[in-house]
């Protein structure tokens, strides 16, 4: 259910995470790979990075507590992410002709700790440029909550993107940030 209020949105770690240098590098690489898949419009592979019960969230308000009481620029579960991808790839997607080209710069990766369910909370900075008819630049603080997989990789449980201009006037936001 999209508005499942039990979904754990907290970004405050309850326990410390101790990661080896190699594991930390793995987390960073995961974030870089995610950005790369979006830049290269490899949406199917990007969808596969997500856990089953997971949410992509871009709040509309600074310091927004939840997506239930207030509107959000994006609040998407797997079904809605898949639907967005289907539209982006549909041959009659008039507003994607030409497509949105994008370039993401991810940096300042910091491991914050673990949430009560053991998800790894990772904070990073995103500088995002896109071009479709005109150029647009966006900047954000991003929080990922990552689930460890049995194979030693990661799946995204929550990706929260806090845009510096979330309260601005926007032209269409068609692609994931």
């Amino acid at each position: 259910m999209l508005l499942d209020r039990s979904f754990d949105l907290t970004l405050t770690p309850c326990t410390q995470a101790t990661l080896s240098h190699e594991a930390l590098r793995g987390v960073e690489q995961f974030l870089y790979d995610e950005a790369r898949l979006l830049d290269e419009r490899q949406y199917e592979s990007w969808l596969a990075l997500w856990a089953d019960q997971s949410r992509y969230w871009v709040p509309r308000h600074h310091g927004q507590v939840n997506p239930f009481d207030q509107i959000s620029l994006f609040w998407e579960d797997r079904m809605l992410r898949e639907t967005r991808v289907r539209r982006l790839l549909n041959a009659r997607n008039w507003s994607q002709q030409p497509v949105t080209r994008s370039s993401r710069l991810v940096g300042g990766v910091q491991v914050e700790g673990l949430d009560p369910q053991g998800h790894l909370i990772v904070r990073s900075k995103l500088h995002y440029s896109e071009y479709r008819l005109t150029q647009r630049d966006l900047a954000a603080t991003v929080h990922h909550k990552l689930m460890a997989t049995e194979q030693g990789g990661w799946r995204v449980y929550l990706k929260r993107v806090d845009l510096v201009n979330c309260d601005s006037i926007f032209a269409n936001l068609e692609v994931f940030l």
Partner: peptide, 25 residues
Amino acid sequence: YDRALTYANLINSPSSNVMPDDVEV
């Protein structure tokens, strides 16, 4: 209210899947 909020988020927000094609035409 939940349903109205979902409608606003999905149909009328800048990230709507529906509106960009309107804006394009």
